[in-house]
Simulated scan of single mutants.
Amino acid sequence: MSQLILVLNCGSSSLKGAVLDKETGDVLLSCLGEKLGLPDAYITFKVNGQKEKVELTAEPNHTGAVGAMLDKLKAMGLESQIAAIGHRVVSGGELYSDSVLIDDNVIAAIEKCIPLAPLHNPANLLGIYAAQNIFKGLPNVAVFDTAFHQTMPEHAYIYAVPRRLYRELGLRRYGFHGTSYRFVATEAARFLGKDINDSRFVVAHLGNGASVAAIRNGKSVDTSMGITPLEGLVMGTRAGDIDASVYEFLADNLNLSVKEVTNLLNKQSGLLGISELSSDCRTIEEEAIKGHEGAKLALEIFSYRLAKYVASMAVAAGGIDALVFTGGIGENSDIIRAKVLNYCSFLGFEVDEQANLAARFGKDGIITTADSKVPSVVIPTNEELMIAQDTARLSGL
């Protein structure tokens, strides 16, 4: 009988889940719980491409969503095969450089890191409590977004502010998307036939949240996100890098509080703010093709800022053996990939237009010509598989 791993990724009002076979990595069940905490909460299951929506009327919260997963597993005859639960946890601060079995001390540590991820860590804890309550006695494992970046050197993560703020408050660059970077770097080395212990990759994880990292010899040496996921690239609704004095400027001129400015920069900016259309890259690309000026400008700024970061990450990596695109936008937007590679042509990239068009919808592939001095490759990420593998390893399965 196969041993199955349940993977949970909880947001404040959502829950993404997947059940994976420990041996093959196959996904037997996936789900998305939405509007958790509201009366009309529901969860949608997907099995073999077929979807089923279940209302969570009786318990419209994370516990109800996890309970509905258990009911679905029972209906499929799989509940007895769940051997462990893996949880995505956004911030472990400096406390964890690897995944860890969850106990009371780990829960206390996740709580301690709430100021570093106030939107994410409380939601991650809700998922942990729900899993412990519903799947009693099974091991739970925390897989931290920040852990992979704990190998960054001090000169990469320290901000140019009074150092006592680091000592007293933990004010430093932490970075995120670490689980994705760990998977993609390993897969890129395999795909390109390189020894990961002798490699220099720049990886762009592009989705609604977007970041880029320099990975040398399989270890993170720099990344664009900071103490929070707001710093760095232009994103779906996040501004990315911006003059810190903007806080005072907007507060004075618009009579906003610090929290209101933070909300504006996190939820009303980025592609949405520039285009004045949408935060969805697909919509923006469609409208840009039709000639919409805001959409065209949003794509250009997104690509230009990313290209500048790619060049800077090549410095951090000590060179560049490959530029890797991943994440929803990175895997599917041939338009943005081509723009970035053209901006970075001085580094030796030359776009293969046909290969770039072909690398979509979960397909990996080299998207530069054979004459390029440096290759660029698309590698689909699989954070769920990484979480499942860590969970199996730490649970002794």
Score class of each variant (00 low, 15 high):
Asn332Ile: 07
Arg238Val: 15
Ala359His: 00
Leu394Gln: 07
Ser220Glu: 04
Ser257His: 12
Pro380Gln: 01
Arg173Val: 05
Val19Lys: 06
Lys267Asn: 10
Gly170His: 09
Ile82Leu: 14
Ala355Leu: 12
Asp103His: 14
Val106Ser: 03
Phe183Glu: 02
Thr369Ala: 03
Asp98Phe: 14
Leu138Gln: 06
Leu4Pro: 04
Leu306Ser: 08
Val54Phe: 07
Leu78Tyr: 06
Asp71Asn: 14
Val378Trp: 02
Ala189Glu: 01
Asn255Pro: 00
Asn61Ile: 03
Asp26Phe: 09
Gly33Thr: 11
Gly291Phe: 03
Asn121Cys: 03
Glu287Gln: 07
Gln268Phe: 02
Asn133Glu: 08
Pro139Tyr: 08
Gly362Glu: 03
Asp321Asn: 06
Asn48Asp: 15
Glu59Ser: 09
Val90Phe: 05
Ser372Trp: 04
Gly178Leu: 05
Gly37Asn: 13
Ala338Pro: 06
Pro375Tyr: 04
Leu323Lys: 00
Gly93Ser: 11
Leu256Tyr: 03
Ala392Ser: 13
Thr368Pro: 04
Glu52Cys: 07
Gly193Cys: 03
Cys281Gly: 06
Thr237Cys: 04
Leu171Tyr: 02
Gly294Cys: 13
Val221Met: 00
Gly396Cys: 14
Glu79Met: 04
Val377Lys: 00
Thr326Glu: 13
Thr186Gly: 13
Ser333Lys: 13
Thr151Trp: 05
Asp40Val: 05
Gly33Phe: 02
Ala388Asp: 01
Asp145Cys: 01
Arg360Thr: 15
Ala117Thr: 01
Ile289Asn: 11
Leu347Asp: 08
Ser278Met: 08
Leu101Val: 12
Lys259Val: 05
Thr146Gln: 06
His149Lys: 10
Ala388Lys: 00
Cys10Phe: 07
Ile301Ser: 03
Val374Lys: 08
Lys194Arg: 09
Ala307Asn: 04
Lys373Cys: 08
Ala210Cys: 13
His177Ala: 00
Asp195Gly: 01
Val310Met: 03
Leu38Asn: 15
Phe45Gly: 04
Gly218Ala: 11
Ala160Thr: 06
Gly178Lys: 10
Gln50Ile: 03
Arg305Gln: 11
Leu28Gly: 10
Ala213Asp: 09
Lys136Ser: 09
Ala109Met: 05
Ala355Asp: 04
Asn133Ala: 05
Gly232Met: 01
Ala322Phe: 05
Val54Gln: 13
Val106Lys: 07
Pro162Asn: 13
His149Ile: 07
Gly232Phe: 00
Arg182Phe: 10
Ala142Lys: 00
Gly236Asn: 08
Leu385Tyr: 00
Leu272Ile: 11
Gln50Glu: 09
Arg200His: 15
Gly11Trp: 00
Gly67Leu: 01
Cys10Val: 08
Ser372Gln: 14
